[in-house]
C-alpha cells in the first residue's frame, strides 16, 4: 500500500467542472462527479486537491475551493483513506507566489499515482460526495 504523508482521516477537496457532473440516484442529492474528474491534469501534472484540514485551519470552507467559479461548479470531498487504498500518494504542495493566487493555495496537495484503470477512478468517484455546488 502506498505511503502518504497526509493523515488518512483527512479529505481532499477536488474542484469539479459542470461538464463532469453525472446523475446517480445512489448518492445524496442525486449528482456526483464522473470518473473523468479524477484524472491527472491534461498538462501532465498530478491531480490537484485542497486538503480539508488546512482549508479549515486557515479559516476557509469547502465553498472557498470554487471561489470565483461559475454556477454548477462543484466540490468533491475525496477521503484520503480511499486514495491510499487506490495506491495514490498524497503530498502537500502549498502554492506560494502564484501568478494568479487562490485563497486555498496553502492547502494545495498533489495526488500522485497511476489513475488509468477505470475501476480505480470509478471507486474514487463513488467514494467522493459533492459537498458544495455553486448555485
Amino acid at each position: 500500500m502506498a505511503v502518504s504523508s497526509v493523515s488518512s482521516d483527512d479529505q481532499g477537496f477536488r474542484r469539479v467542472r459542470p461538464l463532469h457532473l453525472v446523475k446517480d440516484p445512489k448518492v445524496v442529492g442525486g449528482w456526483r462527479a464522473s470518473s473523468a474528474a479524477f484524472e491527472d491534469d491534461s498538462d501532465g501534472a498530478s491531480m490537484s486537491v485542497y486538503l480539508r484540514s488546512i482549508v479549515l485551519d486557515i479559516g476557509l470552507t469547502d465553498k472557498d475551493v470554487v471561489a470565483g467559479k461559475e454556477t454548477k461548479w462543484a466540490v468533491a470531498a475525496i477521503p484520503i483513506q480511499v486514495l491510499v487504498e487506490e495506491e495514490q500518494v498524497v503530498e502537500p504542495d502549498p502554492i506560494v507566489n502564484a501568478l494568479v493566487s487562490h485563497p486555498c493555495d496553502p492547502a494545495h496537495a498533489l495526488v500522485n499515482g497511476v489513475k488509468k484503470p477505470k475501476t480505480r477512478r470509478e471507486r474514487i468517484s463513488k467514494a467522493s460526495p459533492l459537498v458544495f455546488i455553486v448555485p
Binding site: L19, H20, L21, K23, P25, K26, S34, A36, D41
Partner: peptide, 18 residues
C-alpha cells in the same frame, strides 16, 4: 445516460442506477 468529455478528447457514456 450522461455524456461526459475526457481530457484526452474522448467521450464517456454513463449510466448510474440503483
Amino acid at each position: 445516460p450522461d455524456i461526459v468529455p475526457t481530457f484526452e478528447g474522448g467521450l464517456l457514456i454513463e449510466w448510474h442506477t440503483e
